[in-house]
Simulated assay, not measured.
Amino acid sequence: MSGHHKSSAARVVVGVSGSPGSLTALARAVEESRRRGAQLWPVLAWEPPGGELGSRRSPVSAGQVPRWELLARERLLTALRDVFGSTDTGVPGAAVTVRGAAGLALVRIAGREDDVIVVGAGRRNRLLRALSPSVGRYCLAHAGCPVLAVPPSPLQATLTAMRRRNTLRLPLDAGSLLREPGTVPPGA
């Protein structure tokens, strides 16, 4: 026995936003948690619309904070259900929502050397990187523990490519898929 309390067990802290990249990271974080015998801490960081500065300027938005917290919690629970089929990850730990910037929140929570941060490393273009700095880059620059950046799943890249090719978004005729070859559709 190591003599560690439950609260001092190593943790795998994973950033969750609900994006496909974060869901891939969440699935990988469970594997990492099991491999290390560590607790799993899925973390969804949120900020008020318009950011913290905007919420300080607008007293009306301050009254919305409980609603935004609830929406963040619902988004986290939805992400857990999307990956695991329920909110049970199958490993010990705690799912938490935190008000603040994602990178900063992950680094603060994963404050011990034996913690690990897991983030999705989505393929983003230069414009998006300039407008929204990478959570993974922030964690790599500031964390005092290892950071695992998980690339997008190959399936996600395939789905993205398919969406780009089908720019007209033509609906499939489900009826044509169900008819026997060579039969005439009803009403034709």
Rank of each mutant, 00 (worst) to 15 (best):
L76C: 08
A101W: 02
L155F: 01
L80A: 12
C145N: 07
V98M: 05
L155V: 07
A101G: 05
A141F: 00
G136W: 00
A141K: 06
I109R: 11
R137L: 08
A141P: 02
T78W: 08
C139G: 06
D88P: 01
C145V: 07
P151M: 11
L128S: 13
G120R: 03
S86K: 14
A79K: 06
I117Q: 01
G122R: 13
G122S: 12
R123P: 01
S132V: 14
P151D: 11
R112A: 12
A130G: 05
G100H: 05
A110D: 08
R75D: 09
R126W: 09
Y138G: 02
V147E: 02
I109C: 03
A121Q: 13
H142M: 08
V83P: 01
R124S: 15
D115T: 09
H142W: 10
R124K: 12
T97I: 15
P152D: 14
L140Q: 07
G120Y: 10
A110N: 07
V119Y: 09
V119E: 04
L80E: 09
V118D: 03
A102G: 04
D88F: 00
G103N: 02
V135E: 04
L127E: 12
L128W: 00
R112F: 04
C139S: 13
F84Q: 04
P152Q: 13
